[in-house]
Design a protein around this nucleic acid. Structure first.
Length: 316
DNA sequence: ATCCAATCGATCGCAA
DNA sequence: TTGCGATCGATTGGAT
């Protein structure tokens, strides 16, 4: 199947397999489901394009955005008059295999905001705001990188009634798995941190009121998932890493070092002693942190640090 | 000055 | 072959 189009790039797109076939594969690597797409250039050569996301929207054709690695982003939005991908009904549910990688967190019981927990006196406050309106302009095309930063960093309207961070992570993971899960781009440009850091903070999201400076990561996730898909589409193509590095951009919040309590350190060392020859791998540590109710990143750090000490001959 | 929490980023092995 | 998660050394800098 090939489709002629009148896009600004004047290319022809050749999907090698159908979308249904791609879905049937149910691969846990959604970003590779389109890896057979290529563009045919005027000079007769072809170039493989890497898909970077899918944009499912109700009652609309599926949008797929391609990127030619490290060069230019091609967006189907730019060539609406001739959709490059045939109309495909998109099921909202990601393939089940994807959920295995990002298990849903159980709902946390009532809001942990202690100072605002006077129930019965007031009607229930609606959970935060419905969608990010301001400072986003009506037309997403008007969003500038500077505005995008502000949109993503927009504080909660009501800090005393914070969202459940587990719901934030769930929503964010649903979005990323349904949209190609380009982890590196999401982390670097949308959230402004390394992808390893994002993964670590998605393991055991702490209650909003207990978050320190890393609140920024969850806030950006929160704001991102609540944007209109048009605004997301627009912001996605921006180099926000560059924008954040600019002079005048809001400074990255400084880390607040919180030493692990000694008893927690001792528990980790015990885990390590129980399997002296074996590597305590990250999936195990993650599960352990979840079960114990500890925040994962410091757990991982301490374990990592102790392992290097042990290699240097430090006894445990 | 030292410890080590927080973060980054290069590299590896695996699965598709 | 490719991209991902996992691994782990390196770096930064907060806390004492």
């Amino acid at each position: 199947m090939s489709i002629d189009d009148a896009s600004p790039f004047s290319v022809k797109w050749t999907p090698a397999i159908s979308y249904e076939e791609m879905l049937a594969r149910s691969t846990p690597r959604p970003d590779t489901r389109f890896d057979h797409y290529q563009q045919h250039l005027h000079d007769g050569t072809t170039e493989k394009l890497e898909p970077i996301r899918m944009m499912p929207e109700e009652d609309k054709p599926l949008k797929v955005v391609f990127a030619k690695k490290e060069t230019q982003i091609y967006s189907i939005r730019k060539c609406r008059r001739a959709p490059l991908i045939t109309f495909i009904p998109y099921s909202d549910a990601p393939p089940p295999q994807l959920l295995v990688q990002y298990p849903q967190f159980p709902e946390r019981s009532p809001s942990p905001a202690p100072e605002a927990s006077v129930s019965g006196l007031h009607p229930p406050i609606p959970p935060d705001l419905p969608a990010v309106r301001s400072p986003a302009p009506a037309d997403p095309n008007d969003i500038t990188p500077e505005m995008a930063i502000k949109i993503l960093d927009r504080p909660l309207r009501d800090e005393s009634n914070p969202p459940d961070t587990r719901e934030i992570v769930n929503a964010f993971n649903r979005w990323r798995m349904a949209n190609g899960n380009n982890a590196a781009h999401i982390a670097t440009h949308i959230l402004g941190v390394n992808k390893t850091t994002v993964r670590d903070y998605c393991v055991t999201p702490q209650p909003w009121n207990e978050l320190k400076y890393e609140k920024m990561i969850y806030l950006r996730m929160h704001n991102w998932t609540r944007l209109s898909s048009e605004a997301r589409e627009r912001i996605w193509e921006m180099d926000l890493a560059k924008e954040r590095a600019k002079n005048g951009s809001p400074e990255k919040p400084k880390a607040i070092i919180t030493p692990l309590p000694d008893d927690v350190k001792e528990m980790i060392l015990n885990e390590m002693r129980q399997a002296p020859d074996q590597v305590l791998n990250e999936p195990y540590l993650r599960q352990w942190a979840i079960e114990k109710g500890f925040n994962y990143p410091p757990i991982k750090n301490f374990h990592h640090y102790m392992r290097s000490r042990i290699r240097e001959g430090f006894p445990i």
